[in-house]
């Protein structure tokens, strides 16, 4: 779960890519696309997208922003 905050003066479309990896192996991933108006924020959540079956994994999100269409 996370919060997208648009502190710019124009609407943005955010793409949140998140993956759980154990070493080089991807255990699961998710992609969330959310448009946030200027000065606004939005909570996003990716649920049950990866299993590590008892081993420690790394969950790392990447966020990209583009001007909203």
């Amino acid at each position: 779960m996370g919060t997208l905050v648009n502190s710019t003066k124009s609407a943005k479309t955010y793409t949140v890519a998140v993956a759980v990896t154990i070493g080089a192996a991807v255990q699961g991933h998710a992609l969330i696309t959310e448009t946030v108006q200027a000065g606004k924020s939005a909570d996003v959540l990716a649920r049950d997208f990866a299993r590590t079956t008892g081993r420690a994994g790394t969950c790392e999100p990447v966020v990209s922003a583009e001007d909203a269409q």
Binding site: T15, A17, A19, H29, A30, L31, T33, E60, V62, S64
Partner: peptide, 18 residues
């Protein structure tokens, strides 16, 4: 693609993660 499906690789993800 605007989606990330199955075993496809999201190259943007791997390019921009830490």
């Amino acid at each position: 693609s605007s989606s990330w499906v199955g075993w496809d690789e999201n190259m943007w993800y791997y390019a921009t993660r830490a």
